[in-house]
């Protein structure tokens, strides 16, 4: 990779972040998944009652489920608008590989989706009566696991771009693929489940290694 390609990708990364964060095109931006995530944490105690012991025992799992479901919300604006606008064609003409572009987009998506979740988690943990130790382990798990959610999300967004009802299909596809992340994440909260964090890390590494190639191939296939 030349220095020029690097500078171009840095420019594209900045644009990706601005569009994903800012709610370009009136589609909510980074705020909507965050509000959804917090709304689940807020509503859960209303649903099961204010028993602090019950909340404490189940809260971490609820937060993981909320994170997974929040990952579905931004799917329809991750890739499709740029295919419609011909952005990927123009980048391809300039010799930028779809794989590199997808890696950049995964990084931008994680920054605009994963990091806000990490920041909102203490608030959600407070609502669900988690203690400090649980919060620390939850944050560690989310830090290790959200890159996998971001990578899976971008891949699915690229695969379903241009399909009718692509957004609904994307949600259905994401859930089974993200189940390992949920299992490792919830498992890491059990007593003696520290290795769950390592498994989350492994899941993220695998997803990050595979996703740019799968998503890049999907972008190219969408041209035919």
């Amino acid at each position: 990779m030349t220095a020029r390609t690097g500078a171009q990708l840095a420019l594209i990364f900045r644009r990706d972040c601005a569009n994903l964060l800012g709610g370009a095109r009136g589609r909510g931006g980074a705020v909507l998944p965050l509000l959804f995530f917090l709304a689940v944490a807020m509503l859960y105690p209303f649903g099961v009652g204010p028993d602090a012991r019950l909340l404490n025992r189940t809260g971490a799992g609820v937060i993981w489920v909320a994170a997974l479901l929040a990952a579905i919300l931004p799917l329809d604006r991750l890739v499709e608008p740029d295919i419609e606008g011909g952005w990927f064609d123009q980048w391809a003409l300039r010799g930028l590989s779809e794989e590199a572009l997808m890696l950049v987009r995964i990084a931008a998506h994680w920054l605009c989706f994963g990091v806000p979740l990490l920041i909102a988690t203490p608030l959600a943990a407070g609502l669900l009566a988690l203690d400090g130790g649980q919060l620390a382990r939850l944050e560690l798990g989310l830090l290790a696991g959200t890159p996998a959610l971001a990578a899976i999300g971008v891949t699915i967004a690229a695969l379903t771009a241009g399909l009718r009802a692509g957004a609904a299909l994307g949600g259905l596809l994401l859930i089974p693929l993200a189940v390992p992340v949920l299992i490792f994440g919830a498992g890491s909260m059990q007593p003696g489940g520290e290795s769950g964090v390592l498994l989350l890390l492994a899941a993220s590494l695998v997803a990050l290694a595979v996703a740019p190639f799968a998503a890049g191939a999907a972008i190219r296939a969408a041209r035919e």
């Binding site: 171009q8 420019l11 370009a24 009136g26 419609e84 011909g86 952005w87 064609d89």
Partner: peptide, 22 residues
């Protein structure tokens, strides 16, 4: 072609500047 790779919410000058810098 008939695609316009410019972000719809950005002012035109700003949107064009992206490609000039790229």
């Amino acid at each position: 072609d008939d695609h316009l790779p410019l972000d719809g919410h950005r002012p035109l000058a700003h949107a064009l500047a992206f490609w000039r810098r790229l």
